[in-house]
Design a binder for these strands. Sequence first.
DNA 1: TTCATTTTTGACAATTCTGTGACAATTCAA
DNA 2: TTGAATTGTCACAGAATTGTCAAAAATGAA
Lengths: 226, 226
Amino acid sequence: MNKILIIEDDPAVSKGLEISLKNENYEPLIENDGEKGFQTALKIRPGLILLDIMLPNKNGFDICRDLRLSGHNFPIIMLSAKAEEADKVIGFELGADDYVTKPFSVKELMARIKAVLRRRSVIVSDFDKYEFDDVTLDFSKLEAKKGNKKIDMSLKEYEIMKYFISKEGLIVTRNDLLDEVWGYENFPTTRTVDNYILALRKKIETNHSRPKHLLTFHSAGYKFVK
Amino acid sequence: MNKILIIEDDPAVSKGLEISLKNENYEPLIENDGEKGFQTALKIRPGLILLDIMLPNKNGFDICRDLRLSGHNFPIIMLSAKAEEADKVIGFELGADDYVTKPFSVKELMARIKAVLRRRSVIVSDFDKYEFDDVTLDFSKLEAKKGNKKIDMSLKEYEIMKYFISKEGLIVTRNDLLDEVWGYENFPTTRTVDNYILALRKKIETNHSRPKHLLTFHSAGYKFVK
DNA sequence: TTCATTTTTGACAATTCTGTGACAATTCAA
DNA sequence: TTGAATTGTCACAGAATTGTCAAAAATGAA
C-alpha cells in the first residue's frame, strides 16, 4: 500500500520525484496526462497521489474533485508553481490533504508525505461521538460511559465498536472484523474475535449473557443494534 | 479553544447547529442579536464564528468588518439565505474565511469548519497564560510555577504544553506532537516524546507516577486534562 | 575553544494489551 | 434426541507499549 501516483507533466520534476520516492521505499508511478492520471488512480488505487495543478486534458483541481466525488479518498498532495493563497484554499476545499508549492525541497516533501500518510492511517470514519441505550462513546477523547460509570476500553475495543457502529443493523462476519479492524498485517484466529465480543459485552451490556446490542448470529457473525 | 459563537436569529437554525457542534466536541454559544453577538465575540474570543447576515440591530457584514477593523481575526464563516454571488464577494472582501448558503448540509458545514480551523490552526493559539491545578504557565514570559515554586522548563517543553493545552481533553498522538511541535524539519523517534512526557510530569504533576493531567492512553497517545 | 544546557537515543524494567487453547454451553440439523 | 459444529468463557503466556534512567549528541553562550 505504498504505491504513490505522480500526476505531473514536467519530466524533470516527475523523474526527480520518482528517484527520491524509490529511495524511501515507495513505489512511484508516473502519469503525465490529467485524464490518464485520473483513470490510473481509479485503477491502481494508490496509497497517495502527488498531483500537479497545470496538466494537459484535465487539471489537478478537477482530478481532485472528481476523485472525491466518486467516493475515493486517497491522500492527495497538490503541487503547484503558483504560491497564491487562493489556489491553496481551493485545493483544500476540494479535499486535498496538503499543498506544496514549487520549487519544494525534496526533504520537505518527503516529510509531508509521511505526515499525511500517518494522519490517514489513524482516522477511519467521521463520527466521533455515539450514544445508544445508556452508553456513550467518545472516540476522539477515548472516553466511554455506561450510565454514569466510566468504562475502561482498549484502543482495539474502541476500533471494534466503531466498526460495528458503522455497520449498525448489519451482520458483521468475523472475517470482516479481522480485515477491517486488524488489517492485513496481523492474522489472529477467529476465536480472538469472540473474546473481544465477550469483553465488549461485559462492558456495554447490562447483562452480558443476554446481550441486547452485540448479537450473535450463529454460523454467520455478529450484529450491532442500537 | 474550540468555542464557536453562533450569531443567528433563527432558533431553528441555531439550535440545530448547537446540537451538531456539541456532537463534534465544540462548545457552541448562541447569540440572536447582531449587536450583542458582536460584543460577545469581543468578550469570549471564540475559536470561530458562524455569522448570519440578516440580523437584528447589526448585520453580519458590519459585524465581520468591525471585528476585522478592531484587529481581531477570529475565523468567520458567513451563513446566508441569499445565494447571490455578490454577497459572496462582499463577504470575502470583508474578511470572512468562508461562506455557506442556506439551506446547507450539516455535514458540509462541519467539513468547512474543520477546514477553516485547520488552515488557521497554524496561526492561532493566542493564549499566553494558562492555569490549572496549582500550576501557572506564562508562554510569553516563559515562566512557570507550581504552587509558589518556580519550574525550569525548556522552550520545547513550553511548546509541548501549549499544544496539549490547545487540545485539552482530546487524545494527542505522538505523531501529532511530532508533526505540530517538531514540524517538518526534524524527525526524532516517538520515544523522544515519551521522554518529554516524563520530564513534564516531573515538573507539573504532584506525583509524577500518578499523573492527573498528562494521561497515558495505551497504544493511542496522551491526553491533557485541566 | 570549553562548559552548561537541551535534545535525542537506547537499554531495561514495568505495565498493559492481545491472542491462544481448553473446556463448557449452546445451537443446528438430521 | 443426539452428535457435530459453533459460540461463550476463562486464565495465562508472550507481545507490544510505556516508564524510567543515564549517557551520548547537539546546541548555544561565554
